[in-house]
């Protein structure tokens, strides 16, 4: 198969960036989108042109590294990660537009590579249950119904790719934040820190410059893990309750008196 690619090129974070067009030919229809870019890059290197930088790692849809906006949609039209897009899904001879995930908190570092460390800082603010390694109680002493476990798992399946942010007209990270918070907030283990967590994560999200949620639902529509927008409602509810809750200082560990 043959394609014309219109690709965003930007040598580093400070550079202006521009569109460049490349032709690729004789691509196997079973090739993935990223393998098609590999082939192009191999050619560019031999021709002495700078190859296109893009993030990838596992190439099986679970690490969350890849982050291409394909024809205007984060990860392309099929609601899978960029690495799971295959060339057989495109019309032979068509033009495909490739650009990075666009959102102001995700700074473009080079070509199609963006900085998603704001997500790490949102998790850092409260996306965990505070336990150090050491002897722990027998798990079956606290039965958890399969329904609760499945609800936690549905939310915990988030791969942190950032497509939700790139798709949102407000650049909101509420689907990501809601997924992490909901995973922990529905479990019995997550109760002691439930409200501190919800408040701290939302505040960090705001501090990173992500927008608020206005229920457009674009995030859910592109999420490769099919995280439901209902996690945002869950987080809102806990965030609201946290307003009548005295927050602990989360920095530092509990000190013996």
């Amino acid at each position: 198969m043959n394609f014309k690619l219109k690709v965003w090129r930007q040598s580093d974070a400070a550079a202006a960036g521009e569109w460049r067009t490349y032709g690729v030919s004789e691509i196997d229809s079973g090739a993935s989108f990223l393998e098609m870019l590999d082939i192009l890059n191999d050619r560019l290197v031999v021709e002495g042109e700078r190859p296109i930088a893009f993030d990838y790692d596992c190439r099986e849809g679970i690490c969350g590294s890849c982050a291409l906006t394909i024809d205007g949609t984060p990860h392309g039209p099929r609601q899978v990660t960029s690495c799971q897009v295959f060339m057989r899904e495109f019309t032979d001879g068509s033009e495909i537009i490739v650009e990075p995930f666009r959102a102001s908190p995700f700074k473009v570092l080079c070509d199609l590579v963006v900085d998603r460390t704001p997500f790490d800082r949102i998790v850092e603010a409260g996306g965990y249950i505070s336990v150090d390694a050491g002897p722990k109680p027998e798990p079956n002493a606290t039965p958890i119904s399969p329904e609760t476990q499945q609800a936690a798992m549905d939310a915990a399946a988030c791969i942190g790719c950032g497509a939700c942010v790139a798709a949102c007209p407000n650049g909101s990270a509420m689907l990501f934040t809601g997924a992490k918070a909901t995973h922990l907030n529905v479990l019995p283990q997550g109760q002691p820190e439930r409200y501190d967590r919800s408040r701290a994560m939302v505040e960090q999200m705001d501090a990173e410059g992500f927008g608020g949620c206005t229920n457009t639902g674009e995030c859910e529509a592109v999420c490769p893990q099919e995280i439901s927008i209902s996690v945002i409602g869950e987080l809102y509810r806990d965030y609201r309750k946290s307003m009548v809750h005295v927050l602990r200082s989360r920095r530092g560990r509990m000190k013996a008196q």
């Binding site: 993030d55 790692d57 596992c58 690490c63 969350g64 590294s65 590579v113 900085d115 998603r116 460390t117 997500f119 790490d120 998790v123 942190g160």
Partner: peptide, 8 residues
């Protein structure tokens, strides 16, 4: 990787 969470 770009985040510790992405290791294989």
């Amino acid at each position: 990787q770009d985040s510790a969470r992405r290791a294989h």
